[in-house]
Simulated assay, not measured.
Amino acid sequence: MGGSQSRVDSDNKVYHPETSIQFSPAVVSHLSDHAAAPEIPPERQSTLDHHVRSRIQAELAHLRAEEEDVRSQIERALQKENLDKERAIARLDDGAEGAEGGVKSGPTLLGDLDEIQEKVQRSKQKQNAAEVDAARQASAAVISCYQNNPTSPLDCWKQVSNFKQSIALLEQEYIKSLH
């Protein structure tokens, strides 16, 4: 009693319905969408995204390293080419002290350029000092003329004119130095 109900049948039974079963196109579409693109859990998607990002970053770092290597190789080749050209020019130069004696390196040339610029600045300062001295002398001439002619200051027009010209020269030189 009841023993037959608790037994498991090992035979599968297939039932064939007497009427055909039809599904709506919306249900078929929904089932095919889920079969084509199965849902990925958010944790798994996050892990996949992190993995993809890390691979992209690694590839970028590798490409940047390769780019830097190529750039350094190009720079070395250009430096070697420039040095070879400088040596060739030095050999052609009759006034050179030898094949390598006439060739100067970039830092040496920059030092020479700085030295020349300093000399030009000193020369300009000496010239400006001379012009400033001329303006001071003209100013002193005006003052002494006014002191010598307290009753007739109009007699000092030459000294005033010279002073104005010296100031005008100073102004022009200052404006030129700004350009």
Results as ranks from 00 to 15, higher is better:
64 R>G: 00
134 A>T: 14
45 Q>R: 11
157 W>M: 00
7 R>Y: 00
123 S>M: 03
63 L>T: 01
7 R>K: 01
90 A>H: 02
143 I>S: 07
145 C>Y: 03
171 E>D: 04
144 S>Q: 13
99 A>F: 14
25 P>C: 01
154 L>Q: 12
105 S>V: 02
154 L>M: 09
54 S>T: 13
11 D>A: 15
54 S>Q: 12
97 E>T: 14
74 I>F: 09
116 I>R: 01
176 K>A: 14
97 E>R: 14
143 I>T: 10
40 I>K: 14
160 V>Y: 03
75 E>S: 11
13 K>Q: 14
20 S>N: 06
138 A>Y: 08
85 K>S: 08
22 Q>V: 04
112 D>L: 00
146 Y>H: 12
62 H>W: 02
24 S>G: 09
165 Q>G: 05
125 Q>P: 05
167 I>N: 09
6 S>C: 08
67 E>M: 14
32 S>Q: 14
105 S>D: 05
124 K>E: 04
177 S>P: 04
110 L>G: 05
84 D>A: 09
48 L>C: 03
163 F>G: 02
66 E>S: 11
170 L>C: 06
5 Q>A: 10
129 A>F: 09
122 R>D: 02
5 Q>F: 11
6 S>Q: 08
71 R>L: 10
128 N>E: 10
29 S>D: 10
65 A>S: 06
161 S>R: 07
8 V>W: 05
5 Q>L: 12
159 Q>Y: 03
64 R>C: 02
57 Q>M: 01
42 P>D: 12
64 R>W: 02
151 T>G: 09
111 G>D: 13
172 Q>L: 02
92 L>V: 05
148 N>Q: 11
65 A>I: 05
14 V>C: 08
74 I>G: 05
130 A>C: 03
32 S>H: 12
37 A>P: 04
177 S>V: 05
158 K>I: 06
56 I>R: 07
23 F>R: 07
135 A>Q: 08
51 H>C: 02
98 G>T: 10
52 V>R: 01
61 A>C: 01
154 L>G: 10
122 R>N: 05
63 L>K: 02
137 Q>T: 15
179 H>P: 06
113 L>D: 00
85 K>V: 12
47 T>C: 12
119 K>H: 11
41 P>G: 14
116 I>D: 00
35 A>P: 07
24 S>H: 10
2 G>K: 05
126 K>A: 00
21 I>G: 03
87 R>D: 13
118 E>L: 10
100 E>D: 12
1 M>E: 01
164 K>C: 08
4 S>M: 09
68 E>M: 07
154 L>V: 08
66 E>G: 11
71 R>S: 08
145 C>K: 02
91 R>S: 02
137 Q>K: 15
101 G>M: 10
